[in-house]
Amino acid sequence: MLRSARRVLRDVRERRNIDAYVIALLSVVFAVLTLIGDQVSDQYKWAVLLAGIGVLVHRITVPHGGGTPAERVLGDRNTLQRIPLKDRLDTSREVWMFAPSGVNLLSEDHCAAIRTTVLNRHDGVVKVVILDPGAGASVEIATRQLDGGLEFPLQSLPDSIATTLLRMDAMASWQVPGKREFRVFGYNPGFSLVAFDPGRAGGTVIVETHGVGNTATPSRMHLELSRQTDAHWYHYWIDQFDHIWRASKPVGDPPPADDRADGA
Rank of each mutant, 00 (worst) to 15 (best):
R3E: 11
V8D: 01
R10I: 00
V12W: 09
V12M: 12
R15S: 15
R16T: 08
N17C: 05
I18P: 06
A20F: 11
L25G: 14
F30I: 14
A31W: 07
L35H: 03
G37A: 05
G37Q: 04
D42V: 15
Q43A: 07
K45W: 12
W46V: 10
W46Q: 08
L50N: 01
L50I: 13
G54K: 01
P63D: 07
P63G: 04
P63Q: 02
G65Y: 04
P69Y: 04
L74P: 03
Q81F: 02
I83Y: 01
L85M: 12
D87I: 05
D87R: 08
D90V: 09
R93C: 02
A99V: 09
H110S: 13
H110V: 12
C111S: 11
I114S: 02
T116R: 14
L119K: 11
V126I: 14
S138G: 11
E140G: 01
R144N: 06
D147Y: 02
G148E: 11
G149Q: 10
E151H: 06
F152G: 02
Q155V: 09
R167I: 07
M168F: 07
M168T: 10
M171R: 10
M171E: 06
S173I: 00
V184T: 13
N188Q: 03
P189K: 11
A195C: 12
D197T: 11
E208D: 13
T209E: 12
H210Q: 11
T215N: 02
S219Y: 07
L225H: 08
W237Y: 15
I238Y: 04
Q240K: 15
Q240R: 15
I244A: 13
I244F: 12
P250K: 08
V251Q: 12
D253C: 09
D253W: 08
P254V: 09
D259L: 14
R260C: 04
A264G: 09
